[in-house]
């Protein structure tokens, strides 16, 4: 085994895993804390990619800046979706079967709408940091991987600080633990859940921009991420942000090693292996409660 190849693969995996953290952040909040199985999340990530793409190609604005400007729109979308979800499913106690079908329908609608609007060609963005790379000795750190990784880690850190340090963030943690108790404290759990879910969807905007910096995107790319992000959240332990970060980086490294030594077409199978193994051996995950 070539030593240089190994080290390079590990570095690439670390960067990739850092990026996966951004995609998983939304699921870690929605599924891990609010118990909402939002399988449409990757579709919203792709939506974010296309928004970044459209503005970037037409106006030349940096994709990450676009995604930050689009945050309020995604936040509103998330709040709206939660309201529909709450009124139609949670209130009636039917979230398990029909709620899942609802999100599956959303996933499908988003994907088909994107196909009808943009077609199935791969799209990419242009920015100064796509292309060059930093070389440290024999190792190469491509900026198109490094920048998304750093932004992703900043995003992840912000969310972690938010849920542990601020009042609202702690309320979100509280609602995930005991909704009734929160109600007894005269707080409105529905409002807090709506805010939390809206934040979860808002992360998709940034994750989408990062995705299209890393690789060209077409509408169905999101599907590969469904298994991946849920594998990350389950492996990390539901409700644990640090756990999700560790799991994301672990998955990134293992996928990168698989792609380097066995061929990229095998990489998608890794996440599923992780998921099944976790479910079979330790369903609580690495840092689960």
């Amino acid at each position: 085994m070539d030593f240089n190849l190994l080290i390079n693969a590990i570095f690439a995996g670390l960067l990739l895993g850092g990026f996966y953290a951004a995609v998983s952040a939304g699921i870690a909040i929605a599924f891990g804390m609010l118990d909402i199985v939002n399988i449409a999340h990757p579709a919203f990530v792709i939506l974010g990619s296309y928004i970044a793409y459209t503005v970037n190609i037409n106006l030349g604005v940096d994709p990450i800046l676009v995604s930050i400007l689009a945050l309020p729109a995604f936040y509103a979308l998330g709040a709206f979706i939660y309201q529909v979800y709450y009124v139609s499913f949670e209130k009636r106690g039917q979230e398990s079967l029909r709620g899942l079908a609802f999100f599956f329908g959303l996933l499908f609608i988003t994907e088909v709408t994107l196909i009808l609007t943009f077609g199935v060609d791969y799209r990419y963005v242009e920015a100064a940091y796509i292309g060059p790379s930093i070389e440290i000795g024999q190792f190469e750190l491509p900026l198109r991987m490094l920048v998304p990784c750093v932004v992703s880690l900043v995003l992840f850190g912000t969310i972690q600080l938010f849920v542990t340090r601020t009042f609202l963030g702690r309320a979100i943690m509280a609602v995930s633990q005991d909704q009734l108790a929160l109600q007894l404290m005269a707080a409105d759990p529905i409002r807090i859940k709506r805010i939390a879910f809206a934040i979860a969807i808002a992360t998709a905007s940034i994750a989408g921009a990062l995705l299209i910096i890393i690789q060209p995107v077409e509408p169905s790319v999101g599907r590969d991420y469904i298994g991946r992000v849920f594998a990350i959240c389950v492996l990390g332990g539901l409700g644990s942000m640090p756990g999700a970060l560790i799991a994301a980086i672990l998955l990134g490294v293992v996928e990168s090693l698989t792609a380097t030594f066995y061929g990229p077409s095998w990489a998608p199978a890794v996440s599923f292996g992780f998921l099944l193994l976790t479910l079979a051996v330790r369903p609580a995950g690495l840092m689960g409660r």
């Binding site: 599924f31 399988i39 298994g227 996440s271 599923f272 292996g273 998921l275 479910l279």
Partner: peptide
Amino acid sequence: LTLRLRGAFFSIATLAMAVVFQTL
């Protein structure tokens, strides 16, 4: 493998399973 846990895990696992069999 998945049904001993909460229902959602089964659903997610089936979704991921489709990707894996396709890879195979």
